[in-house]
Design a protein around this nucleic acid. Structure first.
Lengths: 206, 206
DNA sequence: CAAAAATATGGAGGTAGTTTCCGTTTGTCA
DNA sequence: TGACAAACGGAAACTACCTCCATATTTTTG
C-alpha cells in the first residue's frame, strides 16, 4: 500500500499526530468550521507540515476514511463467512446504520465530501462498494434475493442515509430505508406490471 | 409569497437576469467552480447588485430551486387526484428520477447544497417532502402500502439518488432504488423476524 | 414637465482563509 | 561525528468573498 516511501521518523510522528487530531475533529463534526491553518496548530505542527502531508482537506479526510472503511470491509467479510448470505447482508446493512449513528460527525463529514464531488474518496468508496457487491452477489446466488437490481442501488440508498444524517428522526428513518431495501430485495423478481423506464419523462414538464 | 415589496423596474430586470444565468450555470453543473464575483460579471451586473439580490450562493440556489420544486409538487398533487394512491406514488417517484436525469447539473448542485447543510433549502425541501408524505399517506390509507415505514425513508432514498448522480450507471441504479423502495413498501407489514433496531451496534468495533 | 425623493447600481478596496516558499532544524547513514 | 537529505514552521503572497458608498436610474410629487 504505502509502497515507495520509507518516511523519516519525525515525519511519521507528525503524520500520526495529524491523523489522530483529524479523527477527533471529524467525530466532533467541526471539520468544516475550522481554519485549515488552525488545524495545523491544534495538531501541534506548522502549516507547511500539514500541507506537505495532506495537500487538501480531502486528502486528509481520505486518510482517515481509509481506516474506517477497512474496518467495515473486514466486518463484511467476516459476516459473509459465518452467516447465511441473506442474513449477512441484512446484518451488515443494519450495522452500517449503527455505525453511522455512533460516528455522526464522521458520517456528516464524509457525506459532505462525497457531495462536494472531490473524488478523493473514490478509493475508499470502491472498497466499501466491493464489500456490498459481494454480499449481494452471494445472496443472489442463494436465491434469497432478486437479481434484477444491483448492488449500486443499495449503495445509493446508503449514501442517502449518510447524507441525510441531520434529519430529526434520522435513526428511525434510516432503519426504515434499510427495511425497505431488504424487503424490496427479498421480493422475488416478480413479473408484476413494473415496466422499467418507460413512463414519460417529467423533464420537459416545465 | 413576495408580499411586501414592489421592486423597482431595473431591479426586477437584474433579478431576472441573475436567475436566468444561474439556471444556466446550474444545469451546466459549473456552479461551484465559478467565482461568485465572476458570476455577477457573467450575468452582466456588478458584484454589489448580485449580493443585494442574493446574499449567498445558497440564497441564489434556493430561488432557482423554488420554481422547480413548485413544478414537482404540482405534479404530485395532480397525480394524486387522478390515479389510485399506490400508482400515483410509483409514478411520481419514477418521474422524479426522470426529472433528475433531465436536469443532472441541477440535481448535483442541489445535492451538494443539501449536504453542505446550509439549511437554506429547507423551505423547498419541506414542500417536496410534504408532497411525498401525502402520496405515501394516501397509499397507506388504501392499504396498498405498509404503515411501519414513514415517508422520511423515501426522502432519504431520493436524496441518495440525487447525491450519487455522478455514478456511471446512474439511471439504471436510480431506477433500481425506486424499485426496491416501492416493492419494499408494498410488502405488507409482515411479522417476519425483522426486529427493528436491536442488533448490536458496530460502533465500538474499532 | 421638472425637480426632489427614493431606490438601485457597480466596482474599488477591506477581510479572511489558503497555499507557497525558503532559511532553519532534525534525523540518518557511513 | 560529520555531511547530506529530509522535514519543519511560519511569514508573506495569493485568492475569493463581501461591504460600502459615490453615482446613476426610476418613481413620485408639485
Amino acid at each position: 500500500m504505502n509502497s515507495a516511501k520509507p518516511l523519516r521518523a519525525d515525519a511519521q510522528r507528525n503524520r500520526e499526530a495529524l491523523l489522530a487530531k483529524a479523527r477527533e475533529v471529524f467525530d466532533a463534526g467541526g471539520f468544516f468550521d475550522l481554519r485549515f491553518d488552525d488545524f495545523a496548530r491544534l495538531a501541534g505542527v506548522g502549516t507547511g507540515t500539514l500541507y506537505r502531508h495532506f495537500p487538501t482537506r480531502e486528502a486528509l479526510a481520505e486518510a482517515v476514511y481509509h481506516e474506517e472503511v477497512a474496518t467495515l470491509c473486514d466486518r463484511a467479510r467476516q459476516l459473509q463467512a459465518t452467516l447465511p448470505a441473506e442474513e449477512a447482508l441484512a446484518t451488515f446493512l443494519r450495522g452500517m446504520v449503527g455505525y453511522m449513528d455512533a460516528h455522526q460527525g464522521l458520517a456528516r463529514t464524509l457525506a459532505t465530501l462525497m457531495a462536494t464531488g472531490s473524488g478523493a474518496l473514490a478509493e475508499g468508496s470502491r472498497a466499501l462498494e466491493q464489500a456490498v457487491t459481494d454480499l449481494v452477489a452471494a445472496a443472489v446466488k442463494d436465491g434469497a434475493v432478486r437479481d434484477d437490481v444491483g448492488a449500486g442501488a443499495v449503495m445509493m440508498a446508503l449514501h442517502g442515509i449518510g447524507a441525510a444524517h441531520d434529519r430529526p428522526g434520522w435513526r428511525a428513518e434510516a432503519d426504515g430505508v434499510i427495511t425497505l431495501v431488504l424487503d424490496g430485495l427479498r421480493r422475488s423478481h416478480s413479473g408484476d406490471g413494473q415496466r422499467e423506464h418507460e413512463q414519460e419523462s417529467v423533464g420537459e414538464l416545465k
